[in-house]
Design a binder for these strands. Structure first.
Lengths: 199, 199
DNA sequence: TTTGTCAATTGACACGGTGTCAAGTGTATT
DNA sequence: AATACACTTGACACCGTGTCAATTGACAAA
């Protein structure tokens, strides 16, 4: 029986889909392409996933498992001060974005056609928002959160700043390196969210 | 003959498309829907626009003409100081976003399937970027631009902050009012781009 | 009045992509 | 030998885009 060697067809499909999404033309990946890459018939894909959206959603979950985003985010929660925690969160999430960027694009593209896809993507962004809120709350507890904002408002702002679209714009349109993106985001969030330390 | 009264079919189509985009389900607007609303046959639409992308692009230009975005942006260029100019630009562009939001969505959605649509949208964002650059340059001349950034870097940041996606996230996801969006954007841009005046 | 032009109409169709269905094949299990 | 299961092949319905051909109706010029 061999526990390894023969990989689950379902995961082979997921891997194929991810492969195409990564080096492919974003949301233009068709069911037939995925099947071909997985080495099975197009129809067989439907034996494992009821719709394209279903498959895409499963693909993002699969990436989460492999890359262990939860673990990375958890580590950011251990930081002592609020500012350190903010930085750690930006490190964790900001460096995760490139990993899921292509799938994100596909999911976002499907979102206005497919409710399921929209919900899947919303779940993910909501999770990020929670991370933002936790970081903001830590700032508040330290007394370093800017008096301009309530926790909820500051969360809105941080969430906006750390959106996939902003990452996309800065790195893809403006040509920023990943390293620079992280560095500048830390700076911008400091400037906007953290109170002026004058003593 | 009557110069008015009988409106150009082409514009009737554009108006129909815009109407559907505004109160409709974003990018889900079909050629048949537009034709129906314009009161003509689906095929007749193709007598005026070669493709759906073509129509959508023409629709954005039509909005620009009607709402006179150029005029509004031009006014922002008259401000005396750099900071005033930045505010005026945010007022002009930020308040224009809701007008084009739905068309923007449709255009963005088509962008990874249709090269023309992608270019049309890119042209528009490029125009916004130029506005950002002009505002940033004005700050630089005043000596109020933060030493953290070169003109080009500051433009990247401002451009990112004023993206349609950020407007969408803050107003649609976080529930900010338009008024608040404008107010907070002015604040955030000040905090990130403007040097601390300590004297 | 006839002729021509032009916008629009009707109806049919090709294409590409998703999702479904039915019948068949090969292989491992019992 | 019988059964179950994963997968295959081939056909097909559905939808939306874009195309084509033949027709209609109005208005203008001769």
């Amino acid at each position: 029986m061999m526990s390894s060697e023969k990989i689950d067809t379902r995961t082979r499909i997921l891997v194929a889909a991810l492969g195409l999404l990564v080096d492919g033309k974003g949301s233009q990946v068709r069911m037939a392409d995925i099947a071909k890459r997985a080495g099975i018939s197009r129809q067989a894909v439907y034996l494992h996933f009821t719709t394209r959206a279903d498959l895409l959603i499963a693909a993002t979950k699969h990436v989460d498992d492999i890359k262990n985003i939860d673990g990375k985010l958890a580590r950011s929660r251990k930081a002592k001060t609020g500012v350190e925690r903010l930085d750690a969160f930006i490190d964790a999430w900001g460096n995760y974005i490139p990993e899921i960027y292509n799938i994100a694009r596909a999911l976002i593209a499907m979102s206005d056609a497919d409710v399921e896809a929209a919900e899947a993507w919303e779940n993910r962004t909501k999770a990020v928002r929670e991370g933002c809120e936790a970081a903001v709350t830590a700032l508040k507890l330290d007394g370093t959160l800017s008096p301009d904002y309530s926790i909820s408002q500051a969360t809105d702002v941080l969430w906006m700043l750390l959106s996939v679209q902003n990452w996309e714009q800065l790195t893809k349109e403006s040509g920023w390196s990943q390293k620079r993106y992280i560095k500048e985001m830390k700076l911008i969030t400091r400037k906007t969210l953290i109170t002026k330390v004058s003593d």
